[in-house]
Simulated scan of single mutants.
Amino acid sequence: MKIRKAVFPVAGLGTRVLPATKAMPKEMLTIVDKPLIQHVFDEAKEAGIEHFIFVTGRNKGSIEDHFDRMYELDATLEARGKKAELEILARDQPQAGAVSFTRQQSPLGLGHAVWCARDIVGDEPFAVVLPDELVLHKPGCLAQMVEAAQQLGEKSNLIAVQEVPADQTHQYGICAVGNRHGKMFEVAGMVEKPAKGTAPSNFSITGRYILQPEIFKILGTQERGAGGEIQLTDAMIGLAKAQKFYGVEFAGERHDCGSKAGFLRANIAYAMARPDLRDGLREEMRKYVEG
């Protein structure tokens, strides 16, 4: 099962990190020296994705600009002999025709955002990557999922899952665990934010999915769910009646960058993973921790 396309829902308002996102898309907030959207783009590229589909909304134009060439900047850097900076920009530049943008014109939730990409995805399996969730690991989370999909060799759907403390399961979508296949298991059921003490396991659904195109038909007729939005989890529950779902326990450190605390932790974690920044940052943090 080859996965060529990935959908990035980037139309959200980023209300959890206001006021930073009042005039800037949350996906353009930086983790060290890259915006969130670049981190997940790189993860998808590493996983072999060939076509990157961004579902945007109002005031998200800077995301399109980020993946475009800025000739004035290139010319200025070249004139100043900034070869290293030019190489960074060239490395991050998508190939011509590899990026598509479509609009989610109403804030109707994640499921609706994915549905908005239906005509670009077409009739083939695809990935969904949520930009405000980062996984620090090589190979990346999506690459691990693509490898798992290839091992299965069957038409199926995959969800990245991670164990969370039992007293936090009410904050997440949760999978019920069926038959195990190494680091994967058959999903025996899904529930969105179960009431405390009722979760079927402590495996939470994280922001990486590989889905079959039949999900679009379900999303197209689905009624609004929690929060008055079209929920992707509800559509997956419907699709699971006809197709298998597998949970993939990925290796790596997950960071929820949609919250202020998670955003700060991600900056520290990604900086500490950089040999050129690690020692200096450790010294600076020591001043605050020991002070």
Rank of each mutant, 00 (worst) to 15 (best):
G109V: 10
I230S: 02
L158Y: 08
C141A: 15
F216N: 08
I31N: 04
I53D: 04
A98T: 06
A160H: 13
I53E: 07
G182I: 08
L108K: 09
V10M: 10
Q243D: 04
F203E: 09
I120C: 03
G61V: 02
Q105G: 12
F8I: 07
F203T: 00
A269G: 03
G140A: 05
H39A: 04
D42H: 00
G48I: 14
Y270Q: 02
K287M: 10
F8S: 05
E249Q: 15
Q105E: 12
H137T: 08
C116T: 05
G182E: 01
E214N: 10
S201W: 08
S204D: 02
Y172N: 00
G109P: 03
Y71R: 15
G57C: 13
E124C: 11
Y209H: 14
K155E: 13
D33G: 00
E229H: 09
A117G: 00
H181S: 01
G262I: 07
Q171D: 04
Q162C: 06
E85L: 12
A23E: 15
L73D: 09
G81A: 08
K83N: 09
N157F: 09
T15E: 15
I88Y: 01
N157Y: 06
V164M: 12
I268T: 02
Q222V: 05
K260Y: 09
F245Q: 03
T30G: 00
G227Q: 04
K287D: 07
E147A: 13
A127W: 13
M272H: 04
E253V: 11
I120Q: 11
G189Y: 09
G14F: 08
I37M: 02
G291P: 01
A143Y: 06
I120L: 14
I268F: 08
T206D: 03
I210H: 03
V7N: 12
E147R: 14
G178A: 08
D279K: 08
F54T: 00
A240S: 13
M1A: 04
A98I: 10
T30F: 00
D119M: 09
T76A: 15
V161M: 07
L18P: 01
C141H: 04
V146Y: 12
D92L: 13
G109M: 12
W115H: 14
S201K: 05
A117Y: 12
P200G: 02
D167M: 12
Q144E: 05
P9Q: 12
L219M: 11
S259F: 10
E50Y: 11
V32H: 00
E85F: 05
H112E: 12
D279P: 01
L18G: 01
E283F: 04
